[in-house]
Structure formats: structure tokens, C-alpha cells
Simulated scan of single mutants.
Amino acid sequence: MAVTWEKFETAAPDLARAVRACFAAAETHVLATLRRDGSPRVSGTEVDFVGAELALGSMPGAVKARDLRGDGRFAVHANPGAELGDGDVKVAGVAVEVTDPAEVARLQGNSDPCHVFLLRMTEAVHTSVAGETIVIDSWREGLPRVRFERKNTGEVVRTES
């Protein structure tokens, strides 16, 4: 089952803050969608936090919108580039298109033609570096949070919360 940004934020507030910060740090993100034949496609995109929602928009007729209309499953990656800073994040789930014109205008802030999708999340992963340790903090709907710490020696420590 996929959840709204608000439910994810309630379930994992510290991880949600890290995810939001990484999306804010990078102007554009990489969206993975599925083509009609099931093969993957990646596209540049931006995500927006609108109230309690995580949303994605696109120009009318864009292939990413066509993909999401056919199969709403997605993954989106925010990476600030060579300087990891606070790390990078990936979220995945199901995109649900908003079709009500008034709601589209509210979410996008104007009435220009576009597609707007609300992102319903099934998972979120934040990867960062602490000293010489890679830290992977992951959340999946309905499961305990899992954190992996991979030290430069190759040792991996797993914890659940």
C-alpha cells in the first residue's frame, strides 16, 4: 500500500526531513518510469512539496506523463552531484494523476496546461557518509525502518527501529 507524504512524514519524521532536504538541495531529479512495453525510462524532473503532498508535474503530452498514466509505478532520485553534502535520496511508489482542473491549478499555482501527479510512497532511502562509513537509512510501508552502516573495512552493521 502506498502512502501520502504526510503519512510518511508521521511514520519517519527524521528520515522525511533528510529526504526533503536532499530534494531541496538539487534543482532537478531523475525520474524512472515504465514504458508501455515494460522497459524502463529515465527523465529529468522536479518534485514539489505542496502542503501535505509530494507532487510531480510535467508539460502536456510529455512521455513521462504518458508512462505514468499507463503504469503509475515510479522511482525518483535526488542527488546533489559530486559533493554529496547531506547525501542522496530515492523514493518509490505509485503516481496518481490529478484530473480536476481546480485541484491542478491549486497544486501548480496557476492554470497553465500540464499534468500533475501526487506521489504515493512505498519506500524511501537516504544514503549518506559519516566519516569513513556509508550510512543507508531505509523505510518501507508497513515494515520496520532499517539502517545499514558499511564501514571502510567492509563490515556491515544492520539495525531496525
Rank of each mutant, 00 (worst) to 15 (best):
H29R: 10
N79I: 05
K7W: 04
E53G: 00
E6W: 00
A102H: 11
V89A: 05
G109S: 11
H77Y: 11
R150G: 12
L118E: 08
A82G: 14
A95T: 09
T122M: 02
L118N: 02
D86R: 04
I134M: 09
E123Y: 00
G142Q: 12
T99A: 14
L34G: 11
V89R: 03
T33C: 05
D100N: 14
V76Y: 04
T153M: 06
R147T: 11
T122S: 13
A52E: 15
T153Y: 01
I136M: 10
V116S: 03
S39T: 15
W5V: 05
G131T: 06
V146E: 08
L118Y: 03
G51H: 04
K7F: 09
V91S: 10
E160L: 02
V91N: 06
R73L: 08
R66V: 15
K151E: 14
T122Q: 12
L31G: 02
V47G: 07
R17I: 03
R41E: 11
G154E: 09
A95P: 06
D88L: 14
L34K: 07
M121L: 15
I136E: 06
E132M: 07
T33Y: 09
L31S: 08
V47N: 09
T45V: 13
A62S: 15
A18D: 14
P101N: 05
D71K: 04
L107G: 03
T127C: 13
K7M: 13
I134D: 05
R145D: 07
G154N: 04
G81T: 06
R66D: 13
I136N: 07
G154Q: 03
F49V: 11
H126L: 09
I136A: 10
H126V: 13
K7E: 12
E149A: 15
Q108D: 11
A102G: 11
A95S: 08
V135S: 02
A65D: 01
R158E: 15
C114I: 01
R41K: 10
A2C: 06
E141T: 04
D88Q: 05
E141P: 00
R150S: 08
V157T: 08
Q108N: 12
D14T: 15
A21M: 03
E123H: 05
T4C: 06
G57F: 03
H115G: 06
R150Y: 01
K151R: 10
R20E: 14
A11P: 02
V63F: 03
P40M: 07
T33F: 02
A105C: 07
A18N: 11
K90M: 13
A105L: 08
P13F: 04
A32C: 09
A26H: 00
G57D: 07
E132C: 01
A78D: 08
W139V: 08
L107F: 01
E27H: 08
A52R: 14
A16G: 13
E83A: 12
T122V: 10
A105W: 12
A24T: 04
G61Q: 12
L118R: 12
A26T: 13
H77V: 13
V3P: 01
G131D: 09
A105N: 09
T122N: 09
I134S: 02
L68T: 01
M1T: 15
G85T: 05
G44N: 06
A102E: 15
W5C: 03
R36V: 15
A11D: 15
N110R: 00
V125S: 04
